[in-house]
Amino acid sequence: MYLLALDWWLILEKCLLVAVVVALSFFIAMYTTYAERKVAAWLQDRRGPNRAGPFGIFQPLADGGKLFFKEEIIPLASSRFLFILGPSMAMLTALLTSAVIPWSTPMHLFGRNISMQIADINIGILYVFGVVSLGVYGILVGGWASNNKFSLLAAIRGASQMISYELAMGLALIAVLMMTGSLQMSVIVQNQVQHGWHIIYQPLGFVIFFVCALAECNRTPFDMAECENELNFGYHQEYSSMKLGFYLFAEYINMFISSAVMVTLFFGAYDIPFVNEASWGLNANWLAIIGFIVFLAKTFFFLFVFIWIRWTIPRFRYDQLMNLGWKKLIPLALANMIVTAVVMLLLKK
C-alpha cells in the first residue's frame, strides 16, 4: 500500500510498536511502584502492601484508581495553562526516549522483517541526550507555574542538578562512542555482541553513567527536587490528583527507560553472554522473544538496584551534590576519556 510515496504498512507497523512500547512502559512503571514498596518493606523488615489481591499485587491499580478519584485542585494564583503543561511535559519526555532502544533482534512476520526498534537513527545516543536535556522543562515549568516559593526553589534545584549531571554523563559516554565509532544504537549493540560487553572495557565509564542516571531521574540520594524535610514536597507540592500521579509516574518510567539505556550501552542489550544464540538453529521469531526476555531481565536488575540504593543511602546535601557533579565526576569522566583514547591509539584499533 503506497500513498504519497510512503509505505503505509511500515507506518502501521511502527505505530503498533510504539503502542506496545508505551503500554509496556506504563505496565512496568506500575509494577515498579509495587516493587519499590515491597523491596522497601523487605529491607526494613516489614510486610509491605498485602491487602489488594494475593500478595497485594493489585496495589498499583488501587493506587492509580485512588489518584484518579482525588479532587483536582488548580491554585488560583497559578498560570493555569503552564500548570497543566508541566506534568504533561514530564510524562512526554519520559516516554520519548524509548524510541531508539533496540528491544530485540528483528522478527519475521507476514513476509516482512520487523525491527524491534522504533527508530534506528544514526544519531541514536544524541537523541537520548536531546530528550534528557528536555526533561528539565517538566520540573521547571510545573514548579514555576505553581506560584509557590518551595516549588520554585525545588524546580531550580532540580533543573540545575540535571544540567550539571548531563555533562558528566555525556563525557562518560564519549569513551564508549570512541570504541564503537558510531552513535547508532544497533551498531553499538552489534559491537558488544562481537567484542564483549562495554562494561568489561569501560567499568569507570559505567559507574559515572550510573551515578548520573540516578541524578537525572531525581532518585535518592540525589532527590533534591523533592526533599521532604526542607522543601515540604518539592516541585509538585501544589499538585493533586492525576497531575501529581503523572509526575510520580514519569519518575518510574524514567527509571525503566534509563535502565534500558544502560543495558543497551554497557550490558549488550539482548545478547546472552558466553553463548552464541544464532547457532541454536531456532526460528528468528523465537530468538527475538528470547532476546526480549533477556533484555527485560537485565533491565529489571537495574530497576532493583535503583530501588535498593533508595532505601540504603541517605540523601546528599545540595552543595555536596554539586561538588560531586562538577569537581569529581567531570574530571573523572575526562580522565576516563583520555585514557581510553590513548590506549586505543597505542593498540591502533
Binding site: G130, S133, L134, L140, I163
Partner: peptide, 13 residues
C-alpha cells in the same frame, strides 16, 4: 539534534 540539545535543552533553561 545539536540544535535541540544546545539551544532548547541548555540555553533556554
Amino acid at each position: 539534534i545539536v540544535n535541540i540539545i544546545v539551544y532548547a535543552g541548555a540555553i533556554m533553561v
